[in-house]
Design a protein around this nucleic acid. Sequence first.
DNA 1: AGCAGAGCGGAACGATCCGTTCCAGTGCTA
DNA 2: TAGCACTGGAACGGATCGTTCCGCTCTGCT
Lengths: 209, 209
Amino acid sequence: MSETALPGRRGQAARNDVVILDAARDVFLLDPKAPISAVAERAGVGISALYRRYPSKEFLLCRLCHDGLRRFISEAEASAGEPDAWAALAGFLGRVVEADVHSLTVHLAGTFTPTDEMGADARRANELAAGLVARAHESGRLRRDAVTEDVGMILECCAAIRVEDPVRTSELRRRYLALLLEGLASGDGPDLPGPPPRPGEMNGRWRPS
Amino acid sequence: MSETALPGRRGQAARNDVVILDAARDVFLLDPKAPISAVAERAGVGISALYRRYPSKEFLLCRLCHDGLRRFISEAEASAGEPDAWAALAGFLGRVVEADVHSLTVHLAGTFTPTDEMGADARRANELAAGLVARAHESGRLRRDAVTEDVGMILECCAAIRVEDPVRTSELRRRYLALLLEGLASGDGPDLPGPPPRPGEMNGRWRPS
DNA sequence: AGCAGAGCGGAACGATCCGTTCCAGTGCTA
DNA sequence: TAGCACTGGAACGGATCGTTCCGCTCTGCT
């Protein structure tokens, strides 16, 4: 943040760093297969400005994805400090859905080979999610047949909601997340049908392309 | 069906009709942007066999999409005959999710210009869905702030669930549909947040490409 | 003041991919 | 046996996209 005030070429370069990352997020969120040139156009810069920062499209994608994963982790950590276990889980899901982290991570999977650090972060993310779910279970508010892996699936559901207007998209996602949470909270009904999702079942995408 | 027994070239041609359609469904369900050649390969036929039947990829896509829409309608009509209003809605959703009709219709939208007949069918589909929702409302089992447009959104959510194994995909979709239905059924909680989806809000995709 | 070069825009290139056409072969059908 | 409906798959032409490259601008240092 401190370099935003930098003047001249240096300053513009620093500013471009974030402009490009934002543009890339927007563009690839809308269309994961978008060309690099679309990112440049959106950012209002030339293609060189991109290639000066990232050696290839794959690296940019990887960076974007990893950023999303880190956001996931930081939101989970934030919720770990929330005393009300149910509010912690619900708030976490709400913020991750709001940040649209899942769309990126999921739709970009397979377009690059993940780094070791990402693998470690993914494991940590999973642990944190498991913790949130476990606490919610202890509190008794979460239906007994819910599992950690439901978190990812629910995020997937919400990410699928998309209309043209981003604001409406956000509102609608909140709506269906609320619906899903209502389902997750109701403990007196019958168990959910079929075997629950298994760990790693959703990771088929992660093979290097 | 009667021509399946036909021998020789005629018979093979007739059999190819359905083989090709099935292959196309499978292929485009997995990847909406798959090349035509992938369909031919999957069907075990040459590319000519495809082009003899459909003048272009766009026509094939349109046919596939229209078939899905018709399936949607026929399932809705089937549920219209079910006396229990809640079971009618739930059963309808279950069958449409099972048939994976929504993925096709949704992910193929925009890749072809819809025909007039499809427009009419789409309108009819919407009426039928509205009828199912209205009846469920009258029965009192459906939460009061649910609207017809929720149907499409819920289908979208379920279609987003996808793992490598098709059988597991089906099972998992059933699971999350059940979760959503649980949410739809619980009437004592607070209203869902944000304005509900509006008619036509999801139709942004339908502009010709 | 002047210069070296960091940073940039965007044209150009080469590779890949894909829809469509075309042609030669095959085996019914009449 | 002659014709033809049907087929497989090679070939073509256009489009797309990642990446490179070149010439320019403007800065920060000397």
